[in-house]
């Protein structure tokens, strides 16, 4: 009996370790890679893919959630990005990557409530089964990928933070995502292709 418990504990420890190693950095997309499309459930119950956006020139894909203070600090700025760029061909698609068993505050009902309270105008999708975020290589919320549509598929043009001041939206100096999308709209090279910011680890 004791041995069984020990074996079980060892197994749990091993699985826990294995699940952590999966999250490790170094995997996922780099700038220049072609990103996978997805088919994920939106807060309105409909399934959403990039392919649904026939007229889009690209996408601002934001891995985000309800429960991370950094993600919350950026909610209004994500909404502003969608307002500014959806009509210009770069809509925001937000994806919630957390395991909702670990973070019930990120479940579908909570996502719907948050989107309603904040008046999100962009799709807020659930990465059910957590299959998409590891392909992108997202490690935290918020984590942004700016994609440009090419003949080969949506090409990764920028990975990182929204801007350089998580504490104070009014004191931002560098608007990394806006600079990237503006450059793409002008047919220019993205000035800063990757940035790093603190965020909440994605809950597995």
């Amino acid at each position: 009996m004791k041995n069984t418990i020990k074996i079980c504990l060892a197994l749990i420890a091993f699985l826990a370790l294995a699940s952590f190693t999966n999250v490790g950095g170094g995997h996922g997309y780099h700038v220049g890679d072609i990103a996978t499309d997805f088919k994920l459930e939106n807060i309105d119950g409909k399934m959403v893919s990039m392919a649904d956006f026939k007229d889009a020139k690209g996408f601002i894909v934001v891995f985000t959630c309800n429960t991370c203070p950094y993600a919350v600090a950026y909610e209004d700025r994500v909404e502003a990005l969608n307002k500014k760029y959806a009509d210009q061909g770069y809509p925001v698609i937000a994806i919630m990557p957390n395991n909702t068993d670990v973070k019930p505050g990120d479940n579908m009902e909570a996502m719907q409530a948050r989107a309603k309270a904040k008046g999100f105008t962009f799709p807020y999708l659930m990465d059910k089964g957590q299959k998409i975020y590891p392909q992108y290589g997202a490690t935290k919320t918020p984590h942004v990928y700016v994609l440009q549509r090419t003949k080969k598929g949506p090409q990764v043009k920028y990975i990182g933070a929204i801007d350089d001041n998580y504490q104070d939206a009014s004191a931002v100096n560098k608007r990394y995502v806006e600079d990237a999308v503006d450059a793409l709209l002008q047919g220019e090279d993205v000035p800063v292709e990757t940035t790093r910011a603190i965020g909440c680890s994605i809950k597995v």
């Binding site: 950095g25 170094g26 490690t139 935290k140 984590h143 990182g160 933070a161 350089d164 998580y166 990394y176 940035t195 790093r196 910011a197 603190i198 965020g199």
Partner: peptide
């Protein structure tokens, strides 16, 4: 953070 995160470690995503 974009400046100091890589200084802590080049592999740190943040």
């Amino acid at each position: 953070s974009n400046t100091w995160i890589p200084k802590v470690d080049k592999n740190w995503s943040g």
